[in-house]
Design a binder for these strands. Sequence first.
DNA 1: GGACAAAGGGAAGTAAACCG
DNA 2: CGGTTTACTTCCCTTTGTCC
Length: 492
Amino acid sequence: MADNKENTSGPSTAKRAKTSKAAPPSAASKKASGSGHGRVAGSQNYSESELMQLVKLARSVRPISMTGWSKVHQLYNAWAEDNNFSLRDVKPLKARYDKVHGDALVKLTGAGEMPELYRLALDAEDAIQGRTHMGVLDDEPADNEPADVKPVIKAENPAGLQKHISVISISSDDDESGSAKVKKERDGQYMVVKAYHSGAASTPPKKPSSSAKASSARSGVQDTRSLALSLTTALSPAAHEQRDAARFQSQLAAGEIAALREENSRLHDRDHERVEVISRLERDKEILSMQLDFVKSGHNVFDSNMHLSSTPGPSGHDQARGRRKSMERAEIAWDNDTDDWQMPHEPDDVSELLAPERDMFEDRSIKQEQIETDTVNAYDRPFANPVVHREPSPPAYNHHDRIGATVHPPELVTQHATPFLRTDNVAGSSKIGLYSRKQTLPMQDGRGFGEAAAFLTPSRSLNNLPPLTNVFKTPVNDMPWGSGTQAQGGSQ
DNA sequence: GGACAAAGGGAAGTAAACCG
DNA sequence: CGGTTTACTTCCCTTTGTCC
């Protein structure tokens, strides 16, 4: 990408140095990229309306992580489909948004009019950052205020701070001549200090010499008169009325701003709730879809909340994280029938399809204890929904029975877990692993039991993948790609 | 034809969960 | 508690399509 080329000379220092060390396009990378990398044929450039929609969705969803971006992605594609635009992937969408925002920032510092798109992008970013969009509190003096302004007692009311102003005073501080300051006091209230020019008053009173006494006295009288006149003017009923009117206007404006702010917040909350609901429903749909896959592949699926109450589960924090992880996991299942990778498909009517399986299960005289034992053995910890029960019961099998880590009887694996291939996640990571079939079910612990028979090293393309059964039957040390354990970054 | 845009993917780093 | 593993993110590169 052109941006990336520009980035090469950009900041990001140590990390970039490290990555650039590994960055040179390896032969393997080049070989792999010869098949199918790059821009997809037929993909269109983003139109103005597509970008507008993207920015609006970003503003509405306020994505922070890839979870949020997947929501934006869903909503965007739904919109694109309705409006005959190209469907996009998460990563490109996020990248495009980042670019728009970056361009908006550049535009922000340049001259010329801010296009609507950029304005919205900045607004969206502000929303994401959780900032409010209220005007900046302007404490600076008015430009048209004359330098020799007479001492006027005036209640400054910047941005609706009226009720916080508790002290109004007159100052002759020369350093602050002509300027108004809003000082925050200890109790959190504000005091407005209005400075004014008055030559004699600006200097500290010195003891007057006898010769200068008369003129000084006259001057003092004049100053006093001037001040008195100003005070009289300021305190006159007309001025008072004018100030009241101004104050009323200010309060009115402040009230409107507060109401708008509240409305804005309320709309954001409502929007967020709706996105949550959509997310929940889609997750449910995915779970049901997976259940259906299992039913169709000859397994029994049942709701097992009742079986698993006795074993302690993961902490609430772990559970939450696990749920999040499993929700976000994208699955690609290996289909033995078609001998190809298969995306999860949507059920027609899940409850109806599952009913016979449930009935069949209920008819069997399987004791509760046996079920629980099998399940706990199989998954090593409880989880709520869904649970797969296999017959015959799967052998004890836990995370550390990984082929790539410890001993695992290959025959059992091939018998009880159908391997499938899955990319690491939807967030653009590149790791590809072989997983047991059980992994296709979302687990509450989030790690997914029975994962990762072996990782392919990144340089290996799928073409080098040995037959799956061989993979599972091959002792770890004889695997063509090594132990299968992922290096842990080398810096921890 | 060149510049740019879009998309896919590799490599590395990090946080957090899990287990013995 | 330390090691292991997974999920996630960012940076960077390459390929290929689109546009001027």
